[in-house]
Each structure stands twice: as C-alpha cells, then as structure tokens.
Design a protein around this nucleic acid. Structure first.
Lengths: 206, 206
DNA sequence: CCAAGTATACCGGGTAGTGAATATACACGC
DNA sequence: GCGTGTATATTCACTACCCGGTATACTTGG
C-alpha cells in the first residue's frame, strides 16, 4: 500500500502537514494522520514520541522552505529595497487569492498552542519568525540603513503577521496590498532617515 | 451555592470568558464552563443552543467594551492624531506586560475556528474588527485626511493585529512600542499628504 | 539471530449533546 | 383564597463517540 516512495517518517510528516494545514492542529487526531500516511498509529509513535513532537517536527520542515520563498520573492521583485519588500506582500496577495490559503502556519499553530507555554512547537515558531526578521534586518543593513535596520525589520514583521491575520479573518487579499504600501513607505522613509546620519551607502542592492 | 447575584445566563458567560481567556476555545470543555459557573451542563444547554453559540455570544459581550477602551485610550493620549493612535499601542504595551495578557480574544478565537467557515463566532469577530477600523477611519477623516482615511485605518489595523500576534508569540511588549512608532509615522505622513490636495482642514480633533 | 519497523487490539479518560423529570413563578377562573 | 394551567428554569443520569497513548505480538532485512 506504499504508493508513496518516501521513507515512512517523511510520509507521516507529509500527511500531518496536509491535515494540519486544512483543519488546524487540535482538530486533527493522531489516528487521522496515521491513516492518511498509510501507516498504523503504533508506527507513528515509533517515529515520533508524541503528537506534540510531531507538531514541532512538522513546523521544522516548513522553516527553511518558507524563508527561502520570502528571499526568492524579494530577489525577484523590481525596484529598490522598499519595492522588493513590497514585492513579498504582493506575492502573498497572490497566494491569498486561493481558497486553500490559510495564512501563516507558524502563526496559526502558535495561537492554538499559546496556552501551553513550554510546547516545543512554540520554540520552533519563535525561531522561524526571528530568522525572517534577522534576514530582513540584514537586507536593510546592506541597503545602507544600518542604524534603522533592526527597527525597520520589526516594523515589517508587524505588518507581515498583521496581514496574515487580517487577510485570513476577512478573506480579503486587498489588505495584503495595503500592507505592501505601508511597508514600502516605512522602509523608504526609514532608509532615507538613516542615510542622513550614516556613512555614504556602501551596501549593494544588486 | 449562587454566591454570584448575576442572572444564570450572565454567570455562564462570565465563566466561559474566564476559561476561554485562560485556556483557549477548543481546550475548554462545556463541562468545565458549567462547573465554573456553578450550573449543570443541561442548564447551560438551556441558555445556549450549542458550544459554538456560546463562543459567539461570549465574543459579542466583548465587542462594545473593547471598542470603548480603544476610544478612551485614544482620547486620553496627548498630541495630534498620530500621537493619539500611538497612545493606543502604548496602552496595549502596558497591558501586555502582565503575564495574564493573551493578545486579542477576537483574533485568537478566529484563528482557532478559521477552518469552520460558517462559524457564528467568526461573524462576530469580523464585525468587531470592522467596527474598530471604521472608527479609526472616521477619526482620520475628522483630522482632515478624508482622501487617505480609509487606507490609513487599514494600515493601522494591520499594525494592531500584527502587534497582537507578534507580542503574544515572543512575549515581548517592546514590539508594541515599535508598532506605536510605525503607526504614528504612517498616520503623520498620510495626513500631511492628504492635506496637500484636500480642502483646508475643517475637521476638529477634540 | 537480532534489531528496526509494523499490525491488532485495547485502555482510561474526556467530549458535545440529550431524555425525562422536577422545581419555580406567575395568570386565570371561581 | 385556592386550585389549576402553563412557560420558564434547572437537575441527574445517560449516550455514543473520539482522543492520545500503549501492551503485545508479528514481520522483515542484514
């Protein structure tokens, strides 16, 4: 019955990912995941110590690809840094038009588990968000906004997670465009302010 | 055993509110709510058709007070409109320093139930967020930014809900200050832009 | 043979929601 | 004033099911 050639552990993760995405975390039972993976529950518990561990492992698999996607969208967008940041939001607006779009999995999972302070998935989610923020800060630094880079990165993260939440709640991707404009404004304004009191821009935007 | 003099329905809502706030929606059982309210589960089901209805009714009780709080924080803050908007975030930063703070109940509940498209609580949550956004837009209009008011209100909502999410995830209220600065920047910039091409400010701030 | 991996069948506990009966309170005829 | 009817409000006991996790035994590849 193993129509899928992936190793068992990966098949479980893949099945869990689909179900978590579609129905949320708590709404999905271990039995359902095992069945979807074509595996018995006992096998699942051989590969993962608990459901909580499985949740964390699932988020871990999304960390790297998610960040890579943001980087690609940034690189492929036209214009200066502010335009490239806006490009991320515009690509998200595109994704959000799909009926299957469910916002940010890290955010959704965190909210569902926020009342369990030590949950391993929360650690993974926090690390992921920090990675994105750090990457943003580094691009702002490269663009010559060394003194404002950290603050700008935080502001963009606020808009990003806000857009995830608002677009998901209202199912209205136009908020993603609003976020694109706000982010571009803040970045443009922040960088020009920074350049006034900073060394001449030595960073490259490529 | 009715030490509380409230009508039964209100006592149930009060108990549900406390538990939902502390543990989330799905994590709280109807039995737990009934026990906390000092009432039999059957009585709870006399006053509310289902758990889903109870959740929606609970959110409804928070709609008006929540908006009133935002208005009060706005009115009590110093400065022009941008400063007053920032005042809301600064008050939220204060609240967020409490260990019991759990972000925005509307947002948290929505995320937990987002995979149940017709859920009554989602309707209430969307209406609440729209009410806040509409109120913001009206204050921006009064401040003379008629042409940008709607867009500014949306941008502030993005920062607001973003701040709720980010502060909750990282448990770091300083993001609320970052949001305050970003919101003030956007509002100041948006209003001055609007005034360039609008009638002289006839609106009043007080 | 042994270890990695799989299968069946089960456990204790929790879940939303219900059936049937009861208590309370107020309205009406007389 | 008193019985009676009726709607509201509340209780206890119960169903039918789902959940995360496990005990035990079997299969398969090196």
């Amino acid at each position: 019955m193993k129509d899928n050639s992936l190793p068992t552990r990966d098949r479980i993760l893949q099945a869990a990912g689909k179900l978590f995405h579609r129905d949320g975390i708590r709404a999905v039972s271990v039995d359902a995941i095992a069945e979807k993976a074509g595996v018995t529950k006992r096998t699942l518990y051989y590969h993962f110590r608990s459901k909580d561990d499985l949740i964390a492992a699932h988020l871990q698999t999304r960390d790297e690809p998610n960040l890579a996607l943001f980087k690609r969208w940034f690189d492929e967008a036209e214009g200066d840094v502010s335009g490239k940041v806006a490009g991320i939001f515009r690509q998200l607006a595109h994704s959000a038009r799909s009926a299957k779009w469910k916002g940010c999995g890290f955010l959704r999972t965190s909210v569902e588990l926020i009342n369990l302070p030590g949950h391993p998935a929360l650690v993974v989610a926090r690390a992921h968000k920090k990675r994105v923020e750090d990457w943003l800060a580094s691009t702002f630094t490269k663009a010559g906004a060394s003194s404002e880079a950290a603050s700008l990165a935080r502001q963009v993260m606020l808009l990003l997670d806000g857009a995830f939440s608002v677009v998901l709640l209202h199912r209205d991707p136009s908020y993603m465009e609003t976020a694109a404009e706000a982010a571009a404004d803040l970045v443009r304004h922040g960088i020009s302010n920074s350049n006034l009191s900073a060394v001449p821009p030595t960073g490259r935007t490529t």
